[in-house]
């Protein structure tokens, strides 16, 4: 990977939350390749990576989420033992219950992280995913890489 050229944001888009955090609607975005019961898993064999994403309902039981990630780059045992390690929905629920954040969006998004050819991600699925959260009037997104 020493010769891999990473895509860079130039310029870097940057804004502030439209509402203070205790009143903000928050969505979670993971690249942990989690999927909800009944949803298709990700395609680990897709050339350049599977650029699709899954909508994870906010009321999901986190322990029931499947994980399609088969990266050899890291030890998955922690994530398998506790999905919150890469999809901290239970922690966000607790923060919402304490009033630290306003509310959770009705859906969260899951990508598969191991995308080496991000052309279609940039052209299609990332904009489509962002459009969904914008339509939901999400104020803040928290992103977690796996």
């Amino acid at each position: 990977m020493a010769t891999y050229r990473y895509r860079a944001l130039e310029p870097v888009p940057f804004g502030f939350p439209t509402r203070p955090l205790p009143g903000a609607r928050v969505a979670l975005v993971t690249t942990g390749a989690v999927y909800a019961p009944g949803q298709p898993p990700f395609d680990d064999s897709a050339r350049g990576g599977d650029v699709s994403f899954r909508e994870i309902p906010s009321d999901v039981d986190v322990s029931t989420l499947g994980i399609a990630h088969k990266s050899d780059a890291f030890d998955q045992s922690g994530f398998l033992a506790d999905r919150n390690l890469g999809f901290p929905l239970d922690r966000l629920r607790e923060m919402a219950a304490r009033g630290e954040i306003g509310e959770l969006n009705r859906r969260h998004l899951s990508f598969m992280g191991s995308i080496t050819a991000p052309g279609r991600l940039l052209a299609q699925t990332a904009p489509a995913a962002a459009d969904l959260l914008a339509a939901d009037r999400v104020d803040v997104a928290l992103l977690v890489p796996l």
């Binding site: 944001l9 439209t18 690249t31 990508f111 962002a130 997104a141 977690v144 796996l146």
Partner: peptide, 24 residues
Amino acid sequence: MCHQTVGLVAGELERRGIATSSVS
């Protein structure tokens, strides 16, 4: 690669007025 995906998706969200924070 996962960190690249996070950054690129964060960029799309920011462009739509959604403030993002990521862990790394």
